[in-house]
């Protein structure tokens, strides 16, 4: 099956049709998407600013992550579900929009950056948990993460302008 056939099938599904044609469904799902993104990005920033030693330097990193990560993941799941619904309504249009493609790529990079951090610097977190100064690896991970998420939000906003 060609990718475009799949996209057409997604668009023709009853859910996609409802999101596309119902006047209040799209803005409602979009509102939940924005709320989810706010929580994902906001909670990630709290951790990233600690990792690059800007704020919250007296808090143990692991404790901060225990507090914020359930919010990050819960909101991320909500963002993926609502985002998929919005995508389905015009799958063909979004899939061939470069801002959308770049946003997906950025999300992949965000995951990769997180994986590297968890398999790298974070394994020795017990050694630097309470230090105001975090190790180089953690600082790079925090800085890269901030850049990636600002880009994700920016690309997401541009999708709306490019596809209108």
């Amino acid at each position: 099956m060609h990718l475009n056939d799949l996209l057409t099938a997604i668009e023709a599904s009853p859910i996609a049709t409802a999101v596309r044609e119902n006047t209040w469904l799209f803005p409602t799902i979009e509102s939940i998407h924005v709320l989810s993104i706010a929580l994902v990005v906001g909670t990630i920033m709290i951790v990233d600013f600690r990792l690059i030693n800007v704020v919250g330097r007296r808090r143990p990193v692991s404790e901060l992550m225990r507090e914020t990560l359930p919010w990050t993941w819960g909101a991320f799941v909500a963002a993926v579900i609502t985002g998929s619904l919005l995508f389905s309504s015009s799958a063909m249009k979004y899939a061939h929009n470069w801002q959308f493609e770049a946003k997906m790529l950025m999300l992949l990079l965000a995951g990769l950056n997180m994986a590297i951090f968890h398999l790298g610097s974070y394994r020795s977190v017990a050694l630097w948990d309470r230090n105001a100064m975090t190790p180089t690896g953690a600082r790079i991970a925090g800085g890269v993460s901030l850049l990636i998420w600002v880009t994700v939000v920016s690309l997401g906003r541009w999708i709306g302008f490019a596809t209108n």
Partner: peptide, 20 residues
């Protein structure tokens, strides 16, 4: 779009802080 992006990032800051 750029001003709106800044607006959304600030919303993220408020919402995460308020939730905490």
């Amino acid at each position: 779009p750029t001003v709106q992006t800044v607006h959304i990032l600030a919303i993220a800051t408020v919402m995460a802080s308020i939730v905490m």
